[in-house]
Design a protein around this nucleic acid. Structure first.
Lengths: 244, 244
DNA sequence: CAGTGGTCTAGACCACTCG
DNA sequence: GAGTGGTCTAGACCACTGA
């Protein structure tokens, strides 16, 4: 067991958090697995229970673990309700979460565009998969979406095409089939007129104002692992943000 | 000093946080004032230093206080750079924070509309002030904005009209002139075509796709204190969100 | 150098879960 | 009832700030 003493400038709890983070990222602890009890883990790492707990709180805040009183601490699965809604900000006009259903319309492969290479931190010409989806909200088609993935991170891209096997839960698939745990996304929003493709996919008039959402998602190792562009018809839905 | 023992189900640190929150909301501790040192405050409240620190961390997370090692803990002023950027999500295309400049074009008074009454939790017909602003980003007019305020919370609405006295820092004015400390906002975003008013105010073609941002802001007592609708021309700017 | 917040420790007790 | 995480305490020591 490594010694954690001083030369490293970071506080001890931050070093402990990084060590535990690495165990999850590397797969030493896998999704759903129970961590050792806190006193045991604290002893193994050579820190006090209080310091260990502070490190665990950091992992919990980033949704890498889940703690349940009386039961134990578990590596987070991306299947809980909280995790499902974590990155989906679309609401109905009265504020309820929209119920999304996804249909994959096309999967293609090719060299990364300049923008894909920049956003995904890929070398020029690296191969990417592109997944086009049409998404229904509360029954009607509302979102046209393209997801770009580095081929190197998703060997074989074993994507089921049937919507009921994938649905909105593509990040669950990343974790279970490719071992990639997403923890953070950056989104930039703008407005644009519906293109001919939007009009065809969503059955709306050409030029309808659309909300364009460009997202880059990062995993626990801070690598960009996905880029997506979603075009949302906001005539019956909204994108909700809370600022604190 | 009140006793904090058991019957109350909330954890002690949460009760302490609520007590300190109330001292700030009520004005007993005013903006910029130094709090007593931690050991002293812990003794006054009859809790251990650790419990007090946990309560202070909650207040810090909500930006109600600022802690500076070696100096002390202070009731937050809404003047620090962090506070200024806290609620302003607009960025340039390359991701840098946009530099906003505001021009008040009109201030009016009248009974609340149905929507204003609902969002601001006002009785029907309550009086509201409405402030219309045109906002320039990096030199060009990009945002048309209307702010609605409950007249009861802003007696006299002593708003300076000169842009250099108000600027983007309207929440600083709320705090210094009306004693209202904002801590949280909810925003919903949609896309819409530029109206004739948008076109006139911003000098853009009718029908240009606009990003519409509807915001309701709450103070530390959880009252809604402001509603605003901002219409942003996204041809040169974006709205940025981070999801964790 | 006195005073402040930040870190770290060690342990008691409580609340919850499940067999 | 055994085992878990959640709360709370008491105090030592460190790092930083400003007079």
């Amino acid at each position: 067991m490594s010694d954690l003493r001083r030369p490293d400038a970071r506080p001890l709890y931050a070093q402990v958090e990084a060590i535990l983070n690495e165990r999850i990222v590397s797969g030493a602890w896998t999704s759903g697995q129970a961590l050792p009890a806190e006193p045991e883990l604290a002893h193994e790492l050579g820190v006090s229970p209080g310091t260990l707990r502070r490190a665990l709180s950091g992992l919990e805040r980033r949704h890498l673990i889940e703690r349940r009183q009386g039961r134990g601490t578990y590596v987070a699965r991306h299947t809980s309700r909280a995790a499902l809604g974590q990155f989906f900000r679309v609401r109905t006009l009265d504020g309820r979460p929209a119920d999304p259903e996804s249909f994959i319309t096309r999967v293609t492969t090719g060299p990364a565009t300049e923008e894909e290479a920049a956003r995904l931190a890929l070398p020029p010409g690296a191969e990417v998969y592109r997944v086009d989806r049409s998404r229904r909200l509360d029954g009607a088609p509302r979102i046209a979406e393209r997801i770009s993935l580095p081929a190197a991170l998703f060997p074989g891209l074993n994507l089921p095409i049937a919507p009921d096997q994938l649905g909105a839960e593509i990040y669950v698939h990343y974790q279970s089939a490719h071992g990639i745990t997403v923890v953070r996304s950056e989104e930039v929003l703008s407005a644009a007129a519906a293109t001919e493709e939007d009009a065809a996919v969503l059955g709306i008039p050409l030029g309808t104002p659309m909300l364009v959402i460009e997202r880059v998602t990062f995993d626990a190792a801070r690598r960009p692992v996905e880029m997506r562009v979603s075009r949302l018809d906001t005539r019956a839905h909204r994108y909700a943000v809370e600022l604190t």
